[in-house]
């Protein structure tokens, strides 16, 4: 009787897994073998390996890499300094708060800031550089993406820094290591899990930011996500869209295994 009751919990949950996790992935895979007329074919995959799509995939990865790298560069010192402040919890809350505001509203704010007469150009004017076209460039796309992802990079790094035993740092310093050596040999390796989690939380979504490429980059940047959206909702070529989605899923799996915990390997 006991096991019967226990299995009851599993029924709705397993149903959810089958309907919304397993079935969608299979449907994506299934659709990737059909062309726009509904014929079973491998043409979509052939099309993906033409220079047009390969270039798009490459540039998509390049942008995602840039966004992740810049987020990490800004987030690590921020997280490190946050652990040293007095009212940690309050500062952390202030870091989290912007993530509660809809991504689109933040993107929309940058339409104003980066606009021809916006804040950014006003600052450039006063410094003496003169106004520039900022909106609808690669720079604005990367900047806004980094802006949006920074909190997601700070949080895991902050958590891993908090878990770091401070006596290890003291020991390193006592044994004569310089501040830089201590950081490089002790602090950074021990917080690597946080860095990995942060990179994972930034890189994968950065591959698929179609709304930012539309709003901020003015279609100058085409990511894999933009292409999926384009094929599904504009040209209605679901087969090709599904094929690109299959490659996105593969990329995701690769990144997950790269940034996953490899404790056994050390």
């Amino acid at each position: 009787m006991r096991s019967n009751v226990r299995n009851l919990y599993l029924i709705p949950y397993a149903l959810w897994i089958v309907l919304f996790v397993v079935a969608p992935i299979f449907l994506i895979l299934y659709y990737s073998f059909f062309d726009i007329e509904g014929n079973l074919t491998l043409a979509n995959y052939k099309k993906f390996f033409t220079p047009v799509y390969l270039k798009m995939a490459l540039s998509s990865f390049w942008y995602a890499f840039l966004i992740t790298a810049f987020s990490l560069l800004i987030a690590y010192p921020t997280a490190y300094l946050l652990t040293k402040t007095k009212h940690k919890q309050l500062w952390l809350l202030l870091i989290i708060l912007p993530t509660w505001i809809n991504l689109l509203l933040k993107a929309y704010a940058f339409l104003g800031i980066f606009g021809t007469y916006g804040l950014a150009n006003a600052i450039l004017e006063t410094i003496g550089i003169g106004s520039k076209q900022i909106l609808f460039t690669d720079f604005s796309f990367v900047f806004v993406s980094v802006y949006i992802f920074i909190p997601f990079m700070i949080l895991p790094i902050y958590n891993s820094l908090e878990q770091l035993n401070p006596s290890l740092v003291d020991a390193a310093r006592d044994l004569g290591a310089s501040a830089w050596t201590t950081f490089r040999r002790v602090v950074f390796p021990l917080t690597l899990d946080g860095v990995k989690a942060g990179c994972q939380a930034v890189f994968i979504p950065a591959l698929s930011l179609f709304m930012l490429t539309r709003l901020i980059a003015g279609n100058r940047v085409i990511t894999l996500g933009t292409a999926v959206e384009q094929h599904f909702l504009v040209t209605q070529d679901w087969g090709m869209g599904a094929t690109i989605a299959v490659f996105l899923i593969i990329a995701m799996a690769v990144i997950m295994s790269l940034t996953g915990n490899r404790r056994g390997k050390v």
Binding site: V21, A23, I28, P205, S208, G225, E229, L248
Partner: peptide, 18 residues
């Protein structure tokens, strides 16, 4: 965890098909 780490476009597109 699949749905947590999947990019939104993948979830959206696959649900649209579903």
């Amino acid at each position: 965890n699949v749905l947590i780490v999947s990019p939104d476009v993948i979830i959206g597109a696959s649900f649209l098909i579903l």
